[in-house]
Design a binder for these strands. Sequence first.
RNA 1: GUGGUUUUAGCUCAGUUGGUUAGAGCGCCUGAUUGUGGUUCAGGAGGUCGUGGGUUCGAGCCCCAUAUUCCACCCCA
Length: 459
Amino acid sequence: MSKPSLPKGTRDFSPVEMVKRNYIFETIKKVFRKYGYAEIQTPSMENLATLTGKYGDEGDKLIFKILNSGDFLGKVDEQLLAARNSQLTTSQVSEKALRYDLTVPFARYVVMHQNEISFPFKRFQIQPVWRADRPQKGRYREFYQCDADVVGSASLLNEAEFVLIYREALINLGLKDFTIKINNRKILSGIAEIIGKPELIVDMTVAIDKLDKIGFEGVTNELIERGFTQADIDQLKPVILLEGSNAEKLESLKQVLATSTLGLKGIEEIETVFNYVSRLTTHNLQPVTQLELDITLARGLNYYTGCIFEVKTNEVAMGSIGGGGRYDDLTGMFGLKDLTGVGISFGADRIYDVLEELSLFPVSAAQGTKVLISNFDAAAEVYALPILQQLRSHDIAAELYPAAAKLKKQLGYADDKKIPYVILIGEDEMKSGKLTLKDMQSGAQQQLAIAEIVGQLAG
RNA sequence: GUGGUUUUAGCUCAGUUGGUUAGAGCGCCUGAUUGUGGUUCAGGAGGUCGUGGGUUCGAGCCCCAUAUUCCACCCCA
């Protein structure tokens, strides 16, 4: 028997880690619910056809496919097999796949349940997703997303509320310095339109998205590689290097995009979101200073059509810890037209890594066992059983050491599990009916009747 | 998909030009203490050196393959 191991990019979660992970999930869920979002879940696997074609060519490659059951090779066309073309053969040997994100399954859900849903439909979903990526810092092959989306409402109030949701959840998690970046796909389209290369919008956004990493010169090189001329770049330069406050950026953009109705529409949308946000925070002591218009923000997904979000922490070097945006026609791929939606996602695993690095997890809110009953011998064990049940009936987390072991060992067990109290039951205690309650932190011991112990521990 | 990197005790890691029986710290077990943990002291257990081949009289160390870790690119949470 060889040593067991785990597939690449996957992890076990220990009891200690689960407490921390649940803390993150609960904090985010609480905010989602507060803003009117209700939880749903979808299966881990979807039909392969539901997922393919939704994430671009790169994304499709990263989908984990599930092999068909039974004699899946026997049914494949001979010629196809002989051609050894994996891409063409895939659809013959695999018809299911693990979900790649939560948004596409959600779109599928909306289409399938359209008759029972009342719109606008606000849902949140916290489940793992899988990507056949190469793992690296902050990147796993199985990780959790925390998504909130609303479909059936074009109002930019939704976008504004997502800004508040991001802000509230991250502040509640203890993060101090983070940036919520916002951009609008229509502005990007407008820019591409102005320089007369609307068909190159994807190449343009991919290139300028890297400004942070490779600088203006690097972006220039990449733009040229992707088919832009020096004249195009001269036109793009003031846009890419846009600086100043959000209001100043918007003013400059209005001039650049003066002749693009699409671009102006994007600017107007951003302004509306900003207005909503400021009105929603009027009575808040702290204004939203973390919201920043970033024209270089592109995001890879093909389906975004309006506002785009991305959240980064400035306290730790880490990829984005959240992202999202508006998609005007996501459900169109499944046959339900003209249903607009907007959503955001928290990357729980990255947030975990960030909180860990910054030591921001609260010192365990004592969720474990509160009291351990020692076990000296068979007689003491029998004596302890009704006491154990009495403690539990008062909602006190209690356990009886399951074997008559040395007290040293039992106290060591309580110490390891950070159980704050131990009840000692021996001959003396059974005779007097007064049990010994030991406070593990101070070491102090008291002789108390069971009712007194319950009173003390329940408080 | 591309390039680099890691793997030796439960954990973190040493291990010289290829040479006898592969080490340390922490943890674990036992005892000092037959009913008192987190401190101390004494003793003990624990290894197919990631896996499979190869070179060699001899491999933890060299070569090949493969898995895995971490990192960068692509892309992305």
